[in-house]
Amino acid sequence: MDRLQQITSIAYLCFLRPQKHRTPSSRGSFPCPGGTSVKSQSAWTLLVEKGLLDSATVDAWIEVYSDEIGPKVGAKVVARAWCDHDFRKHLLADGSAAIKEMELSGWALGDLKVVENTPVVHHLVVCTPCSCYPHGLLGIQPSWYKLESYRSRAVRDPRGVLAEFDVLLTDDVRVDVWDSTAELRYLVLPQRPVGSDHLDETPLAELVTRNSMIGTDRNLTLKPGVL
């Protein structure tokens, strides 16, 4: 049995195999006492015991996604675009290529399109089928990004969705909604905060919120945002 077969067997055993006590309320997967926590622990233990997985590698990935990869990476890109006209042009023309030039450590990204907010256009990003997201720039998705309530209404009633995030748009502002796919992700380039002309890239990056790069925040201010 090769490595892939062993791994898929363990995945089947822990997550897909019908359990004796399946409940009618189960939705899409088979429950077991202890739920997903026990299933994932079983998978992890089997993979380590069979030598298919190095537990230190798992810990390293968890640490990277907890501490290093997150909205601060995207905020650096936004701040650079605000300060460097040529970079901004390149970023809007070919997001992936422009970001590669920044040589950010530890990021991984497929195709990326960057869309720019203006006084008369607001951009909102969603993934209606699941939760596609530019992880390399923004980290792990917020819970609400994965909810059906967000995914269903972002394309049908974007102004109503934005109002729930306290973003109230006047009728003269057009809303463009971008539906992500596994191949193409989106990043919103928010407008530079009013009165921030004296700041350079590092303090500017502190003003950029995660939600402003998804489109559920709009008017950034000089008060540092919580990333």
Partner: peptide, 29 residues
């Protein structure tokens, strides 16, 4: 996309990357 009946959005401003231990473990695996 476009479906009805899911209600309002439960906005959680300060989500940690992993709310449960198993979430980080599975991503790492």
């Amino acid at each position: 996309g476009g479906k009805f009946g899911f209600g309002s959005i439960k906005v959680t401003p300060d989500d940690p990357p992993f709310k449960e231990t198993w979430e980080g473990r599975m991503l790492g695996v």
